[in-house]
Simulated scan of single mutants.
Amino acid sequence: MSTGNQEPPSVSGAHRFVGLAENLERYAGTPSEAEPPNVHGPDRGYGLVFFHLEEYHLTSVISSGLRFQPLGAEPAQELACTVYREQAEAARYLVDISSELLVRNRTHLVPDQIVPNEQPLLAGTEFHALLAGGHPLFPPEFTRFTDSQGVEQLQVFTLLPVTLGELNFALDQGVPALRKQWARFEVDVFDIGRPSVA
């Protein structure tokens, strides 16, 4: 029996993510529902999980499965969006369309990347872009998941809606300047109904 074609044991398997679900729950709250990858028919390559943090009345929708897709990301990635509970459907939509885009184009996000859109992402809003980065409320351990040896295996990029004015401001002044603007005006980035600060 030939062993010449056998590959070494995979180091990219699911065992790299042991404890991920518990880590997400620790910061994002109690899982309340899940949407399977085949919710609309064919397997789209990822599911969506809803977490609720009662203390802050926040819901986080987090993708589940992007880490197994050939996106070229190292470490692997998942996407999250946190909003007030009654706005959960908007977060679901934003994570869904962003995940679909990554899977379709076999690409990934980088920290502080802005993904623009010609039309408003959500009807009745000025949001024309999403900013990917660390979570504004949760600690770095939410964004950067490590295995039992302390090796980073996954990054959870939080998507923050950006208005058209803020998009133009960020393109002109840079993302750090936009974040300072948000801090200056005490912008509630979890509120889909918030006004633009630029």
Rank of each mutant, 00 (worst) to 15 (best):
G4T: 01
G4C: 00
P8L: 10
G13F: 09
H15L: 13
F17P: 08
L20A: 12
L20T: 08
N23R: 15
E25R: 14
A28E: 02
A28Y: 02
G29E: 10
P31W: 00
P31Q: 08
P31K: 05
S32M: 08
P37K: 09
N38S: 13
N38T: 14
V39P: 03
H40V: 10
H40F: 06
G41T: 03
P42T: 06
R44K: 15
G45F: 03
G47W: 04
L48G: 07
L48Y: 06
V49F: 00
F51V: 11
F51W: 08
L53Q: 15
E55A: 15
E55C: 11
L58C: 09
I62A: 03
I62K: 03
S64T: 14
Q69K: 11
P70C: 02
P70S: 09
P75S: 04
A76P: 08
E78L: 10
L79F: 10
V83S: 03
Y84C: 04
Y84R: 09
R85N: 14
R85P: 01
A90D: 04
Y93A: 07
L94K: 05
V95C: 08
V95E: 00
I97C: 11
S99P: 06
S99L: 06
E100R: 14
L101A: 13
L101W: 13
L102C: 10
L102N: 05
V103T: 13
V103N: 09
R104C: 07
R106L: 05
H108I: 05
L109F: 09
P111F: 02
D112A: 13
D112Q: 15
Q113D: 04
Q113N: 06
Q113F: 12
V115I: 15
E118A: 14
Q119S: 12
Q119N: 09
Q119F: 13
L122E: 10
A123W: 05
T125S: 13
H128C: 13
A129Q: 10
A129P: 10
L131Y: 05
L131Q: 07
G134A: 14
H135R: 10
H135N: 12
P136M: 09
P136L: 12
F138K: 03
F138H: 12
T143P: 05
T143R: 04
F145L: 07
T146E: 15
D147Q: 07
S148E: 15
V151R: 13
E152I: 08
Q155A: 12
Q155W: 01
V156D: 02
V156F: 03
L159T: 14
V162C: 12
V162P: 10
L171W: 11
D172L: 13
Q173H: 14
Q173M: 11
G174W: 06
G174H: 04
V175N: 08
V175S: 10
Q181P: 02
Q181R: 15
W182C: 02
A183S: 14
A183C: 01
R184G: 01
E186I: 01
V187G: 01
D188K: 04
V189M: 04
D191S: 02
R194S: 00
A198P: 15
